[in-house]
């Protein structure tokens, strides 16, 4: 089994707000992230896939294909967008980095064929990142997580 990671960057804006909370609660829980006008980040995405090395091509996955899938499923949808207003997952979910990583996992996992998605890592800043792993996602599919 070999693991391969491809990186990509995108920039997007967001804000944190739960309509079920009072204005005071939103302010207390989310602080300056609650500013309704939003703020932005340069996100770095790392997509790690795993698989056996194909003896003919020497590849775990065709990188061109992986890049196209990442561009189509993730970057085209998220880059230079206001996540709360333009990305359907965040119509009801708060676009925290946690939920963003789960959303990216859910966008990519069904689209990969030759290799299996192992990890999605999203850096919101160099000092903060979130990981979602395949095994945990599989647990979730089976209702165990």
């Amino acid at each position: 089994m070999v693991y391969l990671t491809r990186k990509a960057e995108f920039s997007a804006s967001h804000y944190y707000h739960n309509p079920a909370f009072s204005p005071e609660e939103n302010q207390r829980v989310f602080g300056k992230c609650n500013n309704p006008n939003g703020h932005g980040h340069n996100y770095t995405l790392e997509v790690t896939v795993k698989g056996a090395v194909d003896p003919k091509s020497g590849f775990v996955v065709d990188l061109k294909q992986l890049k196209e899938i990442m561009n189509r499923e993730v970057l085209d949808a998220l880059d230079h967008r206001f996540l709360n207003k333009e990305v359907p997952e965040f119509a009801t979910k708060i676009p925290t980095t946690e939920n963003l990583a789960v959303a990216i996992w859910n966008r990519l996992a069904p689209k990969l064929s030759s290799a299996q998605l192992h990890r999605v890592r999203v850096y919101e800043t160099p000092d903060l990142f979130v990981d979602v792993y395949g095994d945990a996602a599989e647990q979730n599919l089976h209702g165990a997580a």
Partner: peptide, 10 residues
């Protein structure tokens, strides 16, 4: 789904 979050400090 279990999510892992990492924060850096110096």
């Amino acid at each position: 789904m279990i999510v892992h979050l990492t924060r850096r400090y110096m």
